[in-house]
Simulated assay, not measured.
Amino acid sequence: MILISHIRQFIFCPRILYFYTFCDIKPLYPEYVSLGTQYHNRQNELFKSRKFLKFKLPIIRVYNNLYLQDLSMSGIADLVIECEDEIIVAEYKNQNKPILSTGAKMQLIAYSILASKYLNKPFSKIMLICSNNLKFKIFDITNDDLIKFDKVINSIKKMIDQEIFPHSNASIAACIQCEFKNYCDDRE
Results as ranks from 00 to 15, higher is better:
K135S: 13
P98L: 00
A77R: 10
I109A: 04
L28I: 14
I4K: 01
S168F: 13
N154E: 11
S5M: 00
L57N: 05
Q177Y: 15
R15M: 05
L28Q: 11
D150K: 08
I60T: 12
L79S: 04
Y118M: 14
I59H: 05
I59D: 02
Y18P: 01
S101Q: 00
F55E: 06
P122N: 13
Q95K: 03
Y183I: 08
I129F: 11
P166A: 04
M106E: 00
I99H: 02
I76F: 06
R42M: 14
L3M: 06
T37I: 15
M106L: 02
E179H: 08
E179T: 06
F12P: 03
M159H: 11
R15G: 03
D78V: 05
I16V: 06
L128M: 10
Y63D: 07
D24Q: 12
S72N: 14
S168Q: 07
R15I: 03
F12C: 06
L28N: 11
K117Y: 01
T21Q: 13
E31N: 11
F19A: 01
K148W: 12
I141D: 09
N94Q: 02
I109F: 02
A115R: 06
N120S: 14
C175R: 08
P166R: 05
L71D: 11
R61Y: 07
F10G: 00
F139P: 10
K97L: 01
P98H: 00
I76T: 12
I126M: 04
S168L: 07
E45I: 14
F136Y: 15
I16Y: 07
N94R: 01
E163L: 04
A104L: 00
P98M: 03
L71F: 07
G36H: 07
I109L: 02
E82K: 13
Y29C: 07
K51M: 12
K56D: 10
E82W: 03
S101T: 01
F55H: 08
S116L: 05
K157T: 13
C178H: 08
N65V: 05
G75V: 04
F22I: 06
K97T: 00
L28D: 10
M1Y: 03
D70N: 14
D85I: 03
D144A: 09
L53S: 12
P30D: 10
K105G: 00
F149K: 09
H40K: 10
A110G: 01
S171F: 15
A173W: 11
Y67K: 15
A115T: 02
S112C: 03
D140V: 06
N182A: 13
K148N: 13
N41Q: 12
Y39P: 08
K151Q: 13
H6W: 04
I113W: 02
G36D: 08
K105L: 04
Q38P: 08
G103S: 02
L57G: 05
G103Q: 05
K48A: 11
I60S: 08
D85C: 00
I59V: 06
